[in-house]
Design a protein around this nucleic acid. Structure first.
Lengths: 137, 137
DNA sequence: CTGTATCCACGTGGATACTG
DNA sequence: CAGTATCCACGTGGATACAG
């Protein structure tokens, strides 16, 4: 049993059952799935960035949400935060090795999203036409 | 421009700027990142399942959330829903080709989560020790 | 069995103002 | 520049009851 599908098939079992209410997958996926994390990760994949650089690069993100997002990524060990005690303060962010290894997968997901967003959009339109009064988002 | 990183680097640009408030990546990622979708997808990766089978396989999911989750996956074209008008009603769910193509990436993400959950847990512990009174989840 | 309908608690995320 | 502190609106998700 080297790589392949063994891990995943073996993965649902401990996930679903009562002794393992949370197997760790959801932690990662909710982090990746939150509103801004992926955009931060992809931006940092291009190199080290300062706080304001990140905010300028990621349109629409508020100061508060950028702070929260990078803090969570830092806590998970995906991003390294470096403070230079200058005046005014200067802080840089960069991906850790762990973060970089995730970046590769995130990029694949992003590429998939890009490749299939038309399919998804069409499917949604069809569904909405067939089910005029649904309440799903 | 065959594959590689071109798509991704070209992907942040239309995402961040005002003319493209949403480039479609977030749609997919929030779907993958929501609480139950991945567990449903991975379960369906093993084959067709009925509603109750899914609920039994995924411990802790409520009837309502299972309904919402499979409906959203159906609307996105990732899951096909088939109704047999028997009494009582019988409904089966299976991955579409689109869903299967995503499954592969989801499994990689799940494997990554499994492989690195110790690292992440340790990183969080370290962070929490270093920052005793933070409010981040 | 396969849902729908209601109600509700909670967390996420946005806007704004203020600070070192 | 790089945050922190409030306040608040909204959506998600859980519990429960009911229905086809």
């Amino acid at each position: 049993m080297s790589q392949g599908h063994m891990e995943v098939t073996a993965l649902l079992e401990p996930c679903g059952k009562e002794e393992h209410p949370d197997c760790g997958i959801r932690d990662v996926l909710t982090r990746v799935g939150d509103k801004w994390s992926v955009l931060v990760i992809v931006e940092l994949a291009s190199g080290t960035r300062r706080f304001r650089e990140l905010q300028r690069a990621i349109d629409g993100i508020s100061q508060r949400m950028l702070t929260l997002t990078v803090r969570r990524l830092e806590r998970d060990g995906l991003v390294a935060r470096t403070v230079f005690p200058t005046v005014p303060a200067q802080v840089t962010y960069e991906l850790t090795d762990l973060g970089s290894s995730l970046t590769h997968l995130v990029k694949q997901l992003a590429d998939w999203s890009l490749a299939h967003r038309e399919d998804i959009a069409n499917s949604r339109t069809d569904y909405d036409v067939a089910n005029p009064d649904h309440t799903i988002h």
